[in-house]
Amino acid sequence: MHGLYNFVRGPLAWAAFIIFIGGSLYRIISMLRLAKEKDIIVFEYASLYYALRSIIHWLVPFANINSRQRPVFTIVTFVFHICLLAVPIFLLAHVILWDESFNVSWWSLPEGVADLMTLLVLACCVYFGWRRVTQPEAKFVTSASDFVILTFVALPFITGFLAYHQWLGYKFWLILHILSGEIWLAMIPFTRLVHMLFFPFSRGYMGSEFGAVRHVRDY
């Protein structure tokens, strides 16, 4: 068990970060190169002002028509994404790990708050899963891979929650937690989670076209 722990905590963690960072760079650079070759208009019509206008209107809840029409979904998705990013970065245990390993440290979330945020992420995952099963507009375009991705997003939070509370099998849950977190990181560039990387580009391009060429809102 200890050997396995050292493995996931050491070499596998390095591998996950290298795949995540390297894969992300690869996806972005190859996408931009392809755009340069085949979609030159993306650069021709790009406008920083209108790209930012669009991105901001979609990063602020209720700043676009769609989020106003679906208040429940809007709240769920913002809570989900904020917690999803904030918990791994600002969790005290993670900050300590960074401190121990690389001697860098930053602000951390109060433990009770982080615990609550973890539960919120899981509740949102349940909501998304429920939506895919019951809401026709989502169900129609849902494939098995959507549930696989959702599961792998939820897993680090489930296992992290169990490990933190140390109910039973702490070491087991901890190893599973680290492993699932690593899988999650490595998945980002190569699955639909890539929307995290591509969002600013697709949104920015659409914002440029709507704002600079068509003089109209895209939100």
């Binding site: 755009a35 989502a138 375009v141 697709s202």
Partner: peptide
């Protein structure tokens, strides 16, 4: 005739269905 745009659109679509309410046919 297609390139980065189509690729990004297909890879980025998270199958959320939020575009539905936009469409008069729907």
């Amino acid at each position: 005739e297609t390139g980065a745009r189509l690729k990004v659109y297909v890879d980025t679509c998270v199958h959320c269905g939020l575009c539905s309410e936009a469409c008069h046919y729907y």
